[in-house]
């Protein structure tokens, strides 16, 4: 383990940034293929955050307006949770795209949100992990809520970590007015494991 065990070095951060970028590109491509729509991608943002700053950070990423949010845990080379904050303008069209017949029932809408989040998280985290040579498993996603204010997606007092590494990417599917912010949060003690994988990756360069 290196000296600054729970913060990434400059090189590691650069590497993570690029790997996230690539992972996101692959995720975008996969999604574009299954939905047959062009997906706009953002530049990934990486930050170390204190738990009590997370709600403000989420608000900073997604802005005002009501959102739906899903959480999902991943485990493998490193563990963490991903929050997918969705802004779904046209849920019914999206539903048709995902094979639902007719107008969506409330529980179908929830299932669809879970599914969209799962696809994005799987593609993105999976893509990052693959480049790092880590094998990732995922637990079932769960719904945090729909029609939430961005500040209330996460309640700091409910978080069990004090600091987290946050990797944010944003997908936009114009046609379905779907925008999704994917925020991967790693507890500080997992950062070392990620750092080791990044070091191994840097060694190959």
């Amino acid at each position: 383990m290196n000296a600054s065990a729970n913060v990434l070095s400059g090189d590691q951060t650069d590497a993570l940034q690029e790997i996230a970028n690539i992972g996101m590109g692959q995720a975008g491509d996969s999604i574009a293929r299954i939905w047959q729509q062009f997906v706009e991608l953002s530049v990934p943002r990486i930050a170390i955050v204190e738990a009590d700053r997370i709600p403000a950070l989420i608000h900073h990423f997604v802005g005002d307006g009501l959102v739906s949010a899903v959480r999902q845990a991943f485990h493998g080379g490193f563990r963490g949770e991903v929050l997918v904050v969705l802004n779904t303008g046209n849920r019914h069209e999206l539903g048709a795209l995902m094979g639902y017949d007719g107008p969506l029932e409330p529980h179908e809408e929830e299932e669809m949100l879970l599914d969209v989040a799962n696809v994005l998280a799987g593609a993105c985290i999976g893509g990052i992990a693959r480049q790092l040579g880590a094998d990732m498993g995922f637990s079932a996603p769960s719904l945090i809520g729909t029609d939430l204010d961005a500040h209330s997606v996460v309640r700091p007092d409910e978080l069990s970590v004090a600091t987290a590494l946050c990797v944010e990417v944003c997908f936009n599917v114009k046609i379905h007015q779907l925008s999704a912010h994917l925020i991967a949060l790693l507890p500080r003690e997992e950062v070392a494991a990620l750092g080791e994988l990044l070091d191994r990756f840097l060694c190959t360069l």
């Binding site: 996969s30 299954i34 299932e111 879970l114 799962n118 799987g122 593609a123 999976g126 498993g137 995922f138």
Partner: peptide, 8 residues
């Protein structure tokens, strides 16, 4: 996609 999927 080669990812996991779930139903609940």
């Amino acid at each position: 996609l080669g990812n996991y999927a779930f139903t609940s």
